[in-house]
Design a protein around this nucleic acid. Structure first.
Lengths: 118, 118
DNA sequence: AGTATTTGTTCTAAATAGTAGAGTATTTCT
DNA sequence: AGAAATACTCTACTATTTAGAACAAATACT
């Protein structure tokens, strides 16, 4: 009875988006996710990239969405809010655990023992 | 003068492979990378997946390879050893830094207010 | 009212990354 | 020589990432 719960992995960007959604809480929607990512790490992602990822994440059941109402500001049209599901949090936790194992003991910095080059 | 040093990011699996190479040190070659990954995180990757990723990583300049000699054991044919370049370490460092920022303050665990599960 | 501007999402197309597995080389053991 | 073991190559395919134009809806301005 292989309880192989799928290859619990996340694409690199899916990982980023999921974390950002959690960060933004109830203020997470396409545009805000985009600017938050741009703010947190220096990476300018197109808006299309955000939505395709959000959609895929929803297909996988890692996020769910709800439609909001328009706000009273110029162009403030209805937003589509996203939130991370329990399943999404679980996979995030697993990915994190794997990363911790993989990074454990890895020392980047100085190539000390490399035999003084040559 | 945009010193845009590329979108320093790494695919999810590239990330894993790079870390594993560092772990294995001078004993890193296709087959050992595969079994090491399988050992560290529970993930059974095909051998083909390992090599295509290794090749791609080499194209990007994140790893370099050298050919070893055959060892005196049944089937011990010549191995192709891989090592992470300075550039590879650099990108790894950047990815790590980004991940740290993204995870900062993110609390997964208890959905306290979620209404007792379900 | 009519139109420009702004905020926001959809859709489409294309490039990059991830994955499996069969095929090919060697090498030792019997 | 033939079998078994270790290792790498190659090919094909699927999934993820990415950009940007198109579309929608709401307010601001004249």
């Amino acid at each position: 009875m292989k309880q192989t719960g799928k290859n619990s992995s996340l694409g690199e960007f899916e990982h980023i988006v999921l974390l950002t959604l959690i960060r933004l809480g109830d203020q997470a929607y396409g545009m805000s996710v985009r600017s938050k990512i741009n703010q947190l790490i220096k990476r300018d992602i197109s808006i299309g990239a955000i939505y395709t990822t959000l959609d895929r994440l929803e297909d996988k059941g890692y996020v769910k969405s709800r439609l909001g109402e328009a706000t009273a500001r110029r162009g403030g049209r209805a937003k589509k809010y996203f939130s991370v599901t329990a399943s999404g949090r679980r996979v995030l936790k697993e990915v994190r655990a794997n990363l911790e194992v993989l990074w454990e003991g890895v020392q980047l910095s100085a190539p000390l023992a490399a035999g003084n080059g040559r």
